[in-house]
Write a protein that binds this DNA or RNA. Structure first.
Lengths: 230, 230
DNA sequence: CAAGCTATCAAGCGATCTATTGAATTACAA
DNA sequence: TTGTAATTCAATAGATCGCTTGATAGCTTG
């Protein structure tokens, strides 16, 4: 047996503490939700379709794995991703699995429905600067409030239909949402097109955008700070 | 129940197929080894201290999770990381766990022994260009052969002591190895210093360096190509 | 073709661990 | 005190896991 084997084992054992956190679909969905905005246990339980107790358990597992921070807010507790590195880690896993696992690609296609024309970051910026397009954030209002692309206006997907008049007729509409696994932007583009508008989706969602932007270019609320209980 | 819940569940279930691969210390160690160079099952089994059968099982699990590629070479099978994105993913997990889990930090400290003076990428490049330092790759020769920092010479750690004469007396020696979880560079610096040389370690190991360098700046063999079975 | 090495497969086994639920408990606000 | 939010606890049922052993298949070499 090679020297230092026990210690090397202990090292990888410790890393696996974080690795195990990524082994459950429920926890991955919670991470995905938290990539948009900090949330309370209630909100997370509802949004992920879990019982309160179960959501709490999984959140504590993620917390113990170092992936989340939390803070008490009156009677409730608000969880958030522990930092940018955790966000980057989750996105890396999500993207690698989408690129390399046929199952993920298939499941995503089935969930998202028919494909929709998309536009990249560069192109968006030039079109916006030329005044040829407007950018719309179709996520729920609280997520917009927690951070969004500068210059985007908020029209949550379920208000889009009756707020169509707010959008200029003479410009193309670019919609974005939570990311490649989120159906809102696709849905928005379909709604807009059937209303006779020119519309495309942004390839990226808010989390990718916020990571790829130099600080200051985008608007993200500072991570949870202050006393964090155990 | 919200609409599309089954499909959303299926999606995260699929992503968790890859997530589960990161839940075992043995698999993490295999990934870490493969981040240096492609290897056969034999080599991996020996290097990780597992039985052949068990190593084979875990490698197949990683392969099924989309993290590895493999190719037959005569009587043996050589595994490799499936791509740069997988390397980046593993490094992100490793670094996040080191930064956020006290257990990892502690285990790393115990495994690596006493700390050693380190130098960053920028500083290394300027010192090299000024001819003030020489760069030494202290990993096994096969790993050097599979890819290394340009300008580095190969002196495996277990040959260092008797090959000291090859290193110029008048320059500082910078050693690097597999990365922050690898003890070779530290060991090399200690050896060199006790032989009266000036020596420091490079903060990064080869995998980090290869990811951070624009293509062409470093020398990495192309990923396994050609027919991949199964 | 036969022998020898390498990797995979099949089966089994114990063991640990898992996710989940429902009820009891703690923390805070009004 | 009352009510809401979150955590804890107990318990179960299941599942999954990791590893070992022995047999099998693929390839190379004599």
């Amino acid at each position: 047996m090679e020297p230092g084997r026990e210690r090397k084992d202990a090292l990888f054992e410790a890393v696996a503490l974080m690795g195990k956190a990524f082994a459950s679909p429920v926890r991955l969905e919670l991470l995905d939700l938290l990539a948009q905005a900090p949330r309370t246990v209630q909100e997370l339980a509802r949004a992920s379709g879990q019982s309160i107790a179960n959501a709490s358990q999984h959140l504590q597992a993620l917390y113990a794995a170092g992936l989340l921070s939390r803070r008490r807010e009156g009677t409730s507790v608000r969880y958030a991703l522990a930092g940018q590195d955790v966000l980057a880690l989750w996105l890396a896993l999500r993207d690698a699995s989408a690129a390399r696992l046929a199952e993920v690609e298939r499941a995503a296609r089935e969930y998202l429905g028919e494909e929709v024309e998309a536009i990249g970051r560069e192109q968006l910026l030039t079109r916006l600067s030329r005044g040829e397009a407007v950018l719309v954030d179709v996520r729920p209002a609280e997520e917009y409030a927690a951070g969004h692309i500068v210059g985007a206006r908020s029209i949550p997907i379920d208000e889009l239909e009756r707020r169509l008049a707010e959008l200029p007729q003479d410009r193309e509409v670019i919609a974005y949402c939570r990311g490649p696994f989120c159906a809102y932007a696709n849905q928005a583009v379909r709604t807009l097109r059937s209303a006779g508008r020119r519309a495309r989706r942004l390839e990226e969602g808010w989390p990718e955008w916020s990571l790829g932007s130099p600080p200051g270019e985008a608007t993200r609320q500072p991570a949870l700070s202050g006393p964090v209980e155990r």
